[in-house]
Simulated assay, not measured.
Amino acid sequence: MSALVTGDAVVLGLQPARLPSRALALVIDLAVVWAAYILVSLVMLFATASLDGAAQAAIGVALFVLVLVGGPIAVETLSHGRSLGKLACGLRVVRDDGGPIRFRHALVRGAMGVVEILVTFGVVACFASLVSERGRRIGDVFAGTLVVRERVSPGWAAPVPPPPPWLVGRFAGLDLSRVPDGLWLAVRQYLTRMRQLDPQVSWTMSVRLAEDMVACTGAPLPEGVPPAAYLAGVVSERQARDARRAFGQVHAVPGMAGVPAGGFGQGQGTAPWAAGPQVHGAVPGPGRSPVQGAAQSSVHGAAHTPVRGSVEVLPAEAPAPGPVRSTGFAPPA
């Protein structure tokens, strides 16, 4: 992905958990895990009393690995980053781009946790969390994860604006497997802060991000779609896939995270997709990429959505919005 340099201080829309809350969650998790380990060990001790010493030692090692190491990995994988301690403290483990973790993330965190937490009694984990800007331990760095706070004030979060209704579900067949996490993070940062950027800077960044996304997906930018709307549609499709993978099929309900209470197409002021320099000409010229040509033509194209007051009016040729699919999962604030 090409470097994006702007004078605006763009930050990740997640609030990292700090050491005190993480330490409290860890104490709760360790208490539960050790209680389970001792209980299972006592049961196995009576069950294997007739075996020799070598067999009992092998069973003890197996119990240590399965309960103290495999247990937390299984819990984080099945709960998508929320163990009992994190649930009690309002914390959650997410990817660097805000998405839900998978087995490989939990496996790396659990494997590193043996050294950071069990062997060194948490000293290495505490030191790493203190020196890290976002409170990450070594396992988080290697796994590409972040522990964030889920219970925050409603005014703090910066939700990603939903795409226009005529783009919902349009990118269902798009291949998103080659899009790196860094690009997802950059797109999310841009969408949450594009109203605060200078219009020319916002337009330039949207074109460059759309070019990077097109290069990763291998599919051209749809004709007549503004680059910011295209990015929002792709992010919405990615969140919908994560939601289906994590929670199954979920239908949209107004007022859910990422969906305004008044439904799609309503926002504050003008539609964010209408922002951008007024550029005429639909044919890319020399030195202009196809994405730039399509993006510039969309400013006055048929797919551009006019705004009356605060309600977005659909163009005549745009498909009528049917049942809106929910993302089901929004990156924790």
Rank of each mutant, 00 (worst) to 15 (best):
M256H: 07
E150P: 04
A25E: 05
E223D: 10
L63V: 02
G262E: 14
V148F: 06
A282P: 00
V43C: 09
A330V: 12
P20V: 10
V141P: 02
P220I: 06
L42Y: 14
R244I: 00
A282W: 04
F127Y: 12
A246S: 15
P164M: 05
S326K: 03
G155Q: 14
A330Q: 15
Q189N: 15
I101C: 05
P226G: 10
V234I: 09
R193F: 11
L146N: 06
H280M: 10
A302G: 05
L51I: 05
W273E: 15
G122R: 01
R137D: 01
P162H: 02
I28E: 04
A3D: 12
Q196M: 12
R178T: 06
S202L: 00
D96L: 13
L51A: 10
G53L: 12
A318K: 03
A125W: 00
A88L: 09
G99T: 14
A125S: 10
A330D: 15
P260E: 07
G13K: 00
V94T: 12
S289M: 08
A320I: 09
P226Y: 03
F64Y: 09
I28T: 11
G113C: 03
A252R: 11
W166N: 00
D52G: 15
G265V: 01
G90D: 09
P331Y: 04
A106G: 00
P72Q: 06
G85C: 06
D242S: 03
P199M: 13
G155N: 11
T270F: 03
R102W: 14
V214L: 06
V235G: 00
V65H: 09
C89H: 02
A261M: 03
G233S: 13
S206P: 05
V311C: 12
A106S: 11
G139M: 03
V124P: 02
A295I: 01
K86C: 08
T270A: 13
R151F: 13
G135M: 07
I101E: 03
